[in-house]
């Protein structure tokens, strides 16, 4: 049973993600996490401002239940299924990150520079989290899906729009990491 406490290898995790997609299909639903962000906008009353948010959000309640489950799953995995949460990334990548100020690279699950509670009083860190979130939310809806809807579901269904979106995800990610990170960190 020790394997469960260690990080799960890709050849276990990948197929299990497919299982999640298939389970939702068999339940008559679609795998897509970012559409929940739109539902949350509607619940907050965004329908008053834009017709984009005027839809029957109750039909999406099942997906909010999935989100609730994901939160609980994160809690269970972090507190009961992990003895050492450190993520052993490529030592060269970790060393380069340390020079940039990400001191716990290779030793933590999340960088303290951005995800320790001190960031809440650090204007720069806070601003980067806000910008990151805005881009993810805006981009996911503009592209009509995120990693689950496009990269997993859409590609599995051999849809060309999803391939274009995933190529876009990678262009954006590569630009951020290779061209913008040197300016930011």
């Amino acid at each position: 049973m020790n394997w469960i406490y260690n990080p799960w290898p890709w050849y276990v995790s990948g197929p299990l993600i497919t299982l999640v997609m298939v389970a939702l299909l068999m339940a008559g639903k679609r795998f897509g996490m970012s559409s929940n962000l739109r539902t949350m906008c509607t619940i907050c009353g965004a329908g008053k401002t834009s017709g984009f948010f005027r839809f029957d959000w109750k039909a999406q309640r099942w997906n909010l239940v999935v989100v609730l489950g994901v939160i609980i799953g994160g809690f269970i995995a972090a507190h009961f299924l992990s003895t050492d949460p450190s993520v052993t990334i490529n030592p060269k990548v970790a060393a380069a990150l340390k020079i940039k100020g990400f001191e716990n690279a290779g030793e933590g699950y999340m960088p303290e520079l951005l995800f320790s509670n001190e960031v809440l009083t650090d204007p720069k860190g806070l601003l980067l989290l806000v910008i990151g979130g805005l881009l993810v939310g805006f981009g996911a809806r503009y592209a009509g899906g995120c990693t689950s809807g496009h990269a997993i579901s859409g590609l599995s269904d051999l849809q060309l729009p999803s391939l274009i979106a995933v190529i876009g995800f990678f262009i954006g990610g590569l630009v951020m990491v290779h061209f913008l990170f040197p300016l930011l960190f």
């Binding site: 951005l114 881009l135 993810v136 274009i164 876009g168 995800f169 954006g172």
Partner: peptide
């Protein structure tokens, strides 16, 4: 365009909507 914007945020925040 949507994909690129999403990717920029994904790499910065290090997290997508799941």
């Amino acid at each position: 365009f949507g994909g690129i914007i999403f990717g920029l945020g994904w790499a910065l925040a290090g997290a997508c909507p799941g």
